[in-house]
Design a protein around this nucleic acid. Structure first.
Lengths: 224, 224
DNA sequence: CTGGATCCCTCACGATACTG
DNA sequence: CAGTATCGTGAGGGATCCAG
């Protein structure tokens, strides 16, 4: 029974045995912004069967990637969080996500956008150099997903929920990706109505400078 | 049939749909050193069923990650190679491999080491800063796998096969990992016979400075 | 010999229902 | 809320076979 292994003494093969199973890296992604309950994970991964989520959590715990923690009274309940070792996957997850974002076409009918995927996308596309000397707060709304970003001199803090003191509120949809990829100019996005702003419109230009998806190098076939 | 997708409009989810299937990233790994024939890939992935290799190659080609190229006469045959877009996975693959290498225990009985995994491991563990001002050539032998590394002022060129003009020939086994991880000192490795050298033994110290696996942050459960 | 395609079996995944 | 139980399906594992 040498089952389910790759049979190679290799760092990559071992990494894939730890986090290469289906859904595993999406669980890690959703834990990057912070600890989550089983139900939170379930909500952030609408199409995962609960038994598979159970299995992944056990496997990731056994691999030392996440930790199961029982909350003290009065909150009660159980949360899952990244271990130190698991946290060091963050860089890989962000880079892989950015790589994938470059060939992301139009959303399919069944596609959803979740709070955590958006938060991680902000981290992945953030360009420190472009944020130097900048201090600005954004609130970003995609459908019913609302997050915010605080940018201070080259640092980013992104979190869920609204931000009343935001300098600019951006209300948009899937066009956000085209905007970050430079395929859609801010002025065009505003005119076409694919983004709606509350605040200083010039801050949208800052936004697409700070959060950026580089274009794919050559002709990449986009999904139909 | 929304099958096999994650149902999320997210760069990471999309990336995992492209290269997240079993074996896919190992195929990418083996293509990093250069184009390969079907049979070369098969030999580098001894446990992959040929139908799965066929399927992965087709999927990766459709995803724009690899390209199928028919060689002109007189060589004939078919090779697979990374596209530009696929090549930009290299960084992710190296980082994920290095992450995995940190919790790699002892090799299991069925584990093998392949030429390509070793070449990629050298790239992943290479520390440019530690190689500044250094010019040295190594030949590395693990069982019947032989590769070599040319280090010139902070750059690395690693390729398959021996290197007659090597400054040091290192003959070793799985202990190589402990050596790179700092768990085994060069002097100990030599004394215990887990490495055998031909050339200047002091160059082994340079070797473990240049190629390094950082220790895991906290207690990480190692596989039994 | 390369470059696969085909077959069958098993097990992980997916969907749904149910429990402490 | 936090999972476990059950069961059908389809992808992966392994061996074999086929065309150029």
């Amino acid at each position: 029974m040498t089952s389910r292994t790759y049979g190679q003494f290799c760092g990559l093969a071992h990494a894939l045995e730890l986090v290469g199973e289906r859904w595993a890296l999406l669980v890690v992604r959703d834990l990057i912004p912070g600890p989550k309950r089983f139900t939170d994970l379930r909500n952030g991964l609408p199409r995962i069967p609960t038994n598979v989520l159970s299995a992944r959590l056990k496997e990731l715990e056994g691999a030392g990637v996440i930790r199961r923690r029982v909350l003290p009274r009065p909150l009660g309940g159980v949360v899952y969080e990244l271990t130190d070792y698991g946290s060091e996957l963050e860089d890989v997850v962000l880079r892989l996500g950015l790589w994938g974002a470059r060939s992301l076409g139009q959303p399919r009918p069944e596609d959803v956008v979740t709070t955590d995927s958006l938060l991680v996308a902000l981290r992945a596309t953030f360009r420190r150099e472009a944020a130097r000397g900048l201090r600005v707060r954004y609130e970003l709304r995609l459908g019913d997903v609302v997050v915010h970003a605080r940018i201070d001199h080259g640092t980013l803090q992104a979190a869920a929920g609204p931000l009343p003191e935001a300098d600019l509120v951006i209300e948009t949809g899937p066009a956000l990706r085209a905007l970050l990829a430079g395929e859609l100019r801010p002025s065009e996005a505003i005119e076409s109505g694919s983004v709606r702003l509350t605040g200083d419109p010039d801050l949208l230009t800052r936004f697409v400078e700070v959060f950026h998806i580089p274009p794919p190098p050559a002709p990449v076939a986009l999904p139909a």
